[in-house]
């Protein structure tokens, strides 16, 4: 028993994989037991196998593709754009102390408002479909990027800046060779947070304001008490979140290997 635990807490790639498989299997077993013993009502919870059936059914009927297209298009356009806009605003704020002092309070005020709550308003303004999703995702995803970009640029090591200056670097050279590379891992960590938020944003926007997309499908399945289909879509969304998070985490470590040691 001890040796198994030792192995699972190891650093190797296979140990990490075993851990993931182990926790996944445990969840599935508990889930299966739960649906067989305590929660017998199929409207509340269905066993894993039925969720898989529903998932395959959605793929066969083409519903999965239609919804995936709607969601991915909206996220695919609005998320990269919110990253770009976030980085630009962050750079703008970091460029002067006055700007940061003026913009800072406004930013934290906006950041603490649950923008999701404004979803019905945006849908009323912009109608059902792409544009309301686009704006909502932009608004929730942009803030973490702004904040980390500014923080990263401000945190830039003073010694490195002085070094660049001692070699007669221009402002642009100092930015591209020192500040930006220094801030990059910060920015990526902001993007990772933004990705999780963007998924929440898109789902909420689709709940209220569309006829296609994962959020719409979850809502529709919920209203017809089709718990299996609902869970199938939730799992797809979960996978999107997890994969995105893993990619950005990897990128973060890749960009700043010196911070690990």
């Amino acid at each position: 028993m001890k040796t198994i635990l030792d192995y699972l807490s190891g650093e190797t790639r296979t140990a990490a994989l075993s851990r993931a498989v182990f926790s996944l299997v445990s969840v599935l077993i508990i889930w299966q037991i739960l649906t067989a013993t305590i929660v017998m009502n199929r409207m509340l919870l269905v066993p894993p196998a039925e969720v898989l059936d529903a998932f395959i059914g959605e793929i066969r009927s083409g519903e999965m593709r239609r919804n995936a297209w709607a969601t991915c298009l909206a996220v695919g356009v609005s998320f990269p754009l919110s990253v770009i806009v976030g980085v630009l605003i962050g750079m703008f704020l970091a460029s002067s102390r006055a700007l940061s002092l003026i913009g800072g309070p406004m930013l934290s005020a906006l950041n603490s408002v649950p923008i999701i709550a404004l979803a019905p308003l945006f849908i009323a303004w912009l109608g059902l479909g792409f544009s309301s999703k686009f704006v909502l995702v932009m608004l929730v995803a942009v803030f973490p990027v702004v904040v980390t970009t500014e923080a990263g640029l401000r945190a830039t090591d003073k010694n490195l800046l002085e070094t660049a200056r001692s070699f007669n670097a221009t402002h642009i050279q100092t930015f591209t060779t020192v500040s930006l590379p220094y801030a990059l891992p910060y920015i990526v960590s902001g993007i990772r947070v933004a990705w999780a938020r963007a998924l929440v944003g898109i789902v909420v926007a689709e709940f209220f304001g569309s006829f296609a997309g994962f959020g719409y499908a979850v809502m529709a399945a919920g209203q017809t008490f089709d718990t299996a289909t609902l869970l199938a879509y939730v799992i797809v969304l979960g996978a999107m979140g997890l994969i995105g998070s893993m990619i950005f985490q990897w990128l973060e470590e890749r960009l700043a290997p010196w911070r690990k040691e």
Binding site: N159, L160, E162, T163, S166, F167, T177, V178, P181, L255, A256, W258
Partner: peptide
């Protein structure tokens, strides 16, 4: 002129 600073002033990337 060129300066060699005391602290770690190498670019880590």
């Amino acid at each position: 002129r060129a300066v060699v600073f005391q602290n770690d002033s190498l670019l880590p990337w």
